[in-house]
Design a protein around this nucleic acid. Structure first.
Lengths: 122, 122
DNA sequence: TGCCGTTATTCCCTGTGCTATATTACGCCT
DNA sequence: AGGCGTAATATAGCACAGGGAATAACGGCA
């Protein structure tokens, strides 16, 4: 069972649905899943724990972080292998900005969808 | 080569991207690809030709039409196996309505995306 | 030096969306 | 009856995203 593929969607009931993301030089740059991942990293301070907390394979989470870091002017996440506590992951200021920009974008989409649906039910 | 998976997206350059669709009882009901398919059916009067014209496997096209017909109150496409010219496919009035509703929806999304992108470039 | 928990990397497996290729059913028309 | 072009259905197989597990690398710290 592949859960729901695209998280930002909402798969529950009939109605108008949508999904937004931001493209970068290499394709997808910021999307719903990536933002949730960033928030979990902030919460846990560890990529391993962040991934597991959202039932995502570490490999996949690492790829996403790597993809974001490569496309951003400044990295969104600082990773440390070894050191105090074995290392860890930390969301940078640029990462925080990305989170809030996308959150707003996503919020606006929800409002847009509600408007569109209402428009048709006149 | 899997082409571009989700057509309604626009995969070209960096920026704000989005995709919309309408869910029905069984999941996806109307989306970009489905609407293009309906338009091609209208144009060709044949499911086979419609599918090939957009480089889609007949099997897949048939599944999409079947899915829409099952979820709609009234079928979007009338199919005829055998008969004059071997049969054919015809988009119904309900199908035409679905096309224009979704086209508007999709159009509104493009405008929404432009607004969002502009909003950030102040 | 060795321990520890993390990041980094590799390999294999699986589900899924789709394509491709038959084969059959259909029904008008000559 | 037979031909024709379509829809309808079955089967096989590919490509790819993602999961799971195993292993190595890292670097403070006791």
């Amino acid at each position: 069972m592949p859960k729901s593929s695209h998280a930002g969607a909402g798969r529950t009931k009939p109605g108008f649905r949508g999904r937004v993301w931001i493209d970068g030089p290499e394709g997808t740059f910021i999307g719903y899943g990536r933002v949730v991942l960033l928030e979990r990293i902030r919460e846990h301070g560890s990529l391993t724990k962040a991934a597991r907390s959202m039932e995502m394979a570490y490999r996949h989470a690492w790829d996403l972080v790597d993809s974001m870091n490569r496309q951003a002017k400044e990295p969104f996440v600082e990773l440390a292998a070894g050191g105090k506590g074995g290392g860890g992951a930390r969301v940078t200021a640029a990462g925080e900005r990305a989170i809030s920009v996308f959150r707003k974008f996503h919020e606006d989409l929800q409002a847009f969808l509600k408007r569109e649906e209402k428009k048709l039910k006149l």
